[in-house]
């Protein structure tokens, strides 16, 4: 079983190699471009721009999750994939895992470039604080971790919504595109509505507080949001796997 899962995962990574390398190239290219801009734009301006790919990657991750499913039908490989003795959940799971792997690597690549820019600040004579000397370092790290995890979970949630919407379109033999679009809107509405209700139900869940971050005295993050996203993701994953195995045709 794990052998099959691994083979599928490797296949997904292999199939995504070109697009992954292209995006990685773009991120590195942007880094090089920014390097040439320091003298005109100023160091801090440029440093801010090094984080630009992160905003793009949030959407790109969700788009890739959608595309990696759609390609199977567009390229005509779905009959082969679905003739393998694996469950729909394995197929969806390995696709999500592969996209997530790519996503994490690309985010890390972006952050590495930012870190290199930061470390090299003195070269351009920028006024610079050593990381260790930042006030409230522990709080800051905690904040970045919680914030990053929420974003990652959000990307996964968005990914599974797009995958499910696409597959729902595939369950009908006509108007697939329209059904997919309607399903996307419907699923987003459904998840946001159920989120509101679930967050209220889970109001007893503890909050994480960040003290003295920049100008804010206390910044509160309720773990209920996190839990709700987790529950929604799990439910959507179960449904998507089932649709992949039992409902779609190829």
């Amino acid at each position: 079983m794990s052998k099959m899962f691994f083979a599928l995962y490797r296949k997904e990574l292999g199939g995504a190699r070109n697009i992954f390398l292209t995006i990685l190239g773009l991120i590195l290219g942007l880094g090089v471009f920014l390097l040439t801009r320091i003298s005109t734009w100023g160091y801090w301006q440029v440093f801010g721009f090094t984080f630009l790919p992160l905003a793009f990657l949030v959407f790109w991750g969700m788009f890739r999750a959608f595309a990696i499913v759609r390609e199977e039908w567009k390229e005509g490989t779905a009959p082969f994939l679905r003739s393998l003795p694996v469950s729909g959940w394995s197929i969806i799971g390995t696709k999500l895992l592969a996209v997530f792997t790519e996503w994490v690597v690309l985010v890390l690549a972006t952050l590495t470039i930012s870190a290199l820019f930061y470390a090299a600040a003195p070269l351009w004579g920028a006024e610079w604080v050593k990381l260790a000397e930042l006030p409230n370092l522990v709080e800051r790290i905690k904040f970045v971790a919680v914030f990053g995890a929420s974003i990652a979970l959000g990307v996964l949630l968005g990914s599974i919504i797009f995958q499910l919407a696409y597959l729902l379109g595939r369950t009908v033999n006509r108007f697939s595109g329209l059904v997919s679009i309607a399903a996307t809107i419907g699923l987003i509405y459904l998840t946001s509505k159920s989120s509101e209700i679930l967050v209220r139900w889970l109001s007893f869940a503890p909050s994480i507080n960040f003290i003295n971050l920049e100008s804010v005295d206390i910044f509160s993050f309720t773990t209920a949001t996190f839990l709700v996203m987790l529950i929604e993701f799990a439910l959507l994953f179960l449904v998507t796997g089932w649709v992949m195995e039992k409902r779609v045709e190829s």
Binding site: T77, A78, P79, F80, S83, P85
Partner: peptide, 17 residues
């Protein structure tokens, strides 16, 4: 599916493999 081999009329294999 473990016991069946389905060979489609058109190519359904991954081009990049």
């Amino acid at each position: 599916k473990k016991r069946v081999a389905f060979l489609s009329e058109v190519n359904t294999y991954y081009d990049w493999m």
